[in-house]
Design a protein around this nucleic acid. Structure first.
Lengths: 152, 152
DNA sequence: GCACATTCAATTGCGAACAATTAAATGTGA
DNA sequence: TCACATTTAATTGTTCGCAATTGAATGTGC
């Protein structure tokens, strides 16, 4: 039998969608870095701020569900955001197990400085908005199917 | 002026391709985890092994170029692979600055156990091969455009 | 009311990921 | 040859990401 063609070898790096996603995520991170440095945020911190700019005063768990992150990641990250005076962490009075995350005035204000970020990313991706939307929807659909398998 | 529709608000989490990629990468990682646990590898270690299974006895830099990782990430990772008896690290005699990474017999043998991994991932993605190939190519093209911007 | 399980955040430990620096080896130009 | 830049890994310090555990608060079934 002939040796398997490298074009279809499933163990070839080039053939793995997962590596494509993994390396694209790192590439995005490197593009975001200089933009977010100006805001004093890391990319995961920026994601948390995006969540809070949409809906403030929420428990840690809700942030985690939206970003697919757990308390082991979020607790120290939120403490750093608190140290930067962007959020306030307070125990809920209705349910003392929960910690509610609220934006400070500074945290709200940062949203204005963040408005220019998406368009810089769009420019870097060198791609039409409609193409990006299509890709985004496909990737989200794939992600959700993967997460469904994990939940079993 | 009417309030901007949330469907096109560029600061909305749901509208960001970058978050789609970021969260998909984590979802992939979670699917890989139980499969790779059986091999005793983490996902980045698995990527390094994929590179080595394709081409052995290469300097650290070459691995880094293929995976878009630097020595700060690879040096400790490779030391862990060496501690697991999967690779050997030796200074090149032609150029003493380089460290060459070679597979051990165990490292070579592990490739056989890894063959079942891609098909498990394919099953989890619940998607046709041709769809995945198309998506992969699009994501790689996007990644390469992003990396081109970084290189400027 | 009380034992029990569940929920939620925090903690600990380990493995990435990367910036910045260090140090050694190599290459280059005068 | 010798000063100088370049290349390559290694190191250090900070931040993610997650598994596993802890501990407090809450809910439940009897």
């Amino acid at each position: 039998m002939a040796r398997k063609s490298s074009a279809v070898d499933p163990l070839r790096l080039d053939n793995q969608i997962c590596f494509a996603v993994y390396s694209a995520a790192h590439a995005f991170n490197r593009v975001y870095k200089p933009l977010l440095d100006r805001l004093g945020l890391t990319y995961p911190q920026y994601l948390v701020m995006l969540v809070l700019w949409e809906h403030d005063d929420v428990p840690v768990k809700e942030i985690g569900e939206k970003l697919f992150l757990d308390s082991g990641t979020l607790t120290p990250l939120l403490k750093r955001l608190e140290a930067a005076h962007l959020v306030k962490r307070t125990r809920s009075r209705e349910d003392e197990r929960q910690v509610l995350i609220a934006l400070t005035a500074q945290g709200h204000a940062l949203k204005e400085k963040a408005r220019s970020v998406p368009q810089s990313i769009l420019a870097a991706s060198d791609c039409s908005v409609s193409e990006l939307v299509t890709m985004k929807d496909e990737i989200v659909a794939l992600r959700d199917r993967l997460n469904a398998v994990i939940g079993e």
